[in-house]
Design a protein around this nucleic acid. Structure first.
Length: 417
RNA sequence: GGAGGGAUGCCGGAGCGGACGAACGGGGCGGUCUUGAAAACCGCUGGGACGCGAGUCCCCGUGGGUUCGAAUCCCACUCCCUCCGCCA
């Protein structure tokens, strides 16, 4: 949820929203709805004040005076009751419209869409493609069974098998261990959450089409651990000296991938269900930009230690999604496609989701909304995709990245005979 | 799944439908006293909306309802506890 007062008063704030390409007139509609709301708030509250005063007087009156005063208060009550539905309607409308406005893009974010990201740095070499692409390799190794996955659950589902499973848990162990050592609290969160949490975390209504819902129970399958992690301190006021609070969540993630027909259909690059280790920070408003850089640094070190060549981009305004004010993607070179593809990302939401979740900080200059940030520590499936190409040897075997070896009983995997 | 009990401020814990945003205790903050500290004593100590402001309004798990008036009565929901049943 955006800050309506700032939208009214701060032209830069409004400009940040406009850079995200919102529907024509939506901003003005929101402002108009909010103005209408405020007019009614003033009117209804004045009526309520009169009614409250009248009622209080009854309590102080003698029994003889009461009937007349009750009659008078009754009239005020009816007058109030006649206006209240208008206020409720105005509030609902203002909120409904405002929910569709995205968090403004930060000033440092480039203009444009998907193709306008700014490349910040490139690390490692753009190596040539190995004999097999990730999908063919996964099949050859007996790691990925998409055929039976599709038979059981439909397209974009797969059975992950054999060493790939061991690699998954090695990755998770390694990444969790590293981040716990940095002070992150490890969490296995619920993956089914209430619809309300989806809205408060900033995903509904804008991204609703990407989410699996279980209407009988009023629950949704999360697309990332970010959702339950952001709701962890819902309605709480955190002590300033307890920040930043950093959590690292492991969860399965479920995404409908609507609108991606025919895109990335090979292998497990893009599937409906995958596991992910996700970082999440609650930070003080004054230092959240530093926190974003820290998340990025952790992500880079993880990708680099896996031996993957990558580049860091700052996403353009139109590609940020509704909640992020700024987002870095780490894109890894995918040899079989001859281009960089997204592996991880991190974003600063500022107070956008904290406003709906009502998570605040107390201390210093009073009580303020916290800032929330999130970043991918390890998207397992996609990491396996890149490992399959970068650690595939000429003879069709697989070399285990150095950092994962302590968690596995083997250093390399030969192709099945 | 069945039967009961509960949810109040930072914490504990009161609260006959009318002066309750809320007694009392603890904690915290400030002050007096003291060479310093402790003790004692005094004061302060929730969040949010609207407004330039004075101020007004809302919040006692959540959402409705009854009433001139609800922390207090009614309904639904959520969560917690106890007992019974079932279960990986």
């Amino acid at each position: 949820m955006i800050d309506l007062r700032r939208l009214r008063d701060d032209p830069a704030y409004r400009a940040g929203i406009e850079r995200k390409r919102v529907a024509d007139g939506l901003i003005d509609d929101v402002l108009a709805a909010d103005d209408a709301r405020r007019v009614l708030v003033a009117e209804v509250e004045a009526l309520r004040a009169r009614q409250n005063a009248a009622s209080k007087e009854i309590g102080r009156s003698t029994p003889e005076e009461r009937p007349a005063k009750i009659a008078a208060a009754s009239e005020l009550k009816d007058e109030l009751a006649a206006r209240e539905p208008d206020l409720a309607a105005a509030e609902a409308r203002a909120r409904e419209l405002a929910l569709h406005l995205p968090n403004p893009a930060d000033g440092s974010v480039p203009d444009g869409g998907e193709d306008d990201a700014e490349v910040l740095r490139t690390v490692g070499d753009e190596v040539a493609a190995p004999p097999l692409d990730h999908a063919a390799f996964g099949e050859a190794m007996g790691w990925v069974d998409s055929e039976h996955g599709a038979a059981t659950s439909g397209s974009r589902f797969a059975y992950l098998q054999r060493e790939a499973v061991m690699l998954e848990f090695a990755l998770v162990q390694w990444v969790l261990g590293r981040l716990v050592a940095e002070g992150f609290v490890p969490v296995v969160p619920p993956v089914l959450v209430r619809e309300q949490v989806m809205e408060e975390a900033g995903f509904f209504p804008t991204d609703r089409h990407q989410v699996y819902e279980l209407p009988d129970d009023g629950l949704c399958l999360v697309g990332t651990a970010e959702v339950p992690l952001s709701a962890l301190h819902r309605g709480e006021i955190l002590a300033a000296d307890s920040l930043p609070r950093r959590y690292v969540g492991f969860s399965s993630c479920f995404r409908r991938e609507a609108g991606t027909y025919g895109k990335d259909t090979r292998g497990i690059f893009r599937v409906h269900q995958f596991d992910k280790v996700e970082m999440f920070s609650f930070a003080e408003p004054d230092t959240s930009w530093d926190e974003l850089e820290r998340l990025l640094a952790w992500e880079e070190s993880i990708v680099a230690d896996l031996g993957l060549p990558y580049r860091v981009i700052s996403c353009a305004a139109g590609d940020l999604g509704p909640a992020a004010a700024k987002k870095y993607d780490i894109e890894v070179w995918l040899p079989s496609e001859g281009r960089y593809r997204e592996l991880t990302s991190c974003s600063n939401y500022l107070d956008f989701s904290a406003r709906r979740l009502e998570t605040r900080v107390r201390g210093g200059s009073g009580t303020r909304l916290v800032h929330t940030l999130n970043g991918t520590a390890c998207a397992v499936g996609r990491t396996l995709v890149f490992l399959a190409e970068h650690h595939q040897d000429a003879d069709g075997s697989f070399t285990v990245p150095e950092v994962l070896r302590p968690f596995l009983g083997f250093d390399r995997v030969d192709p099945p005979a």
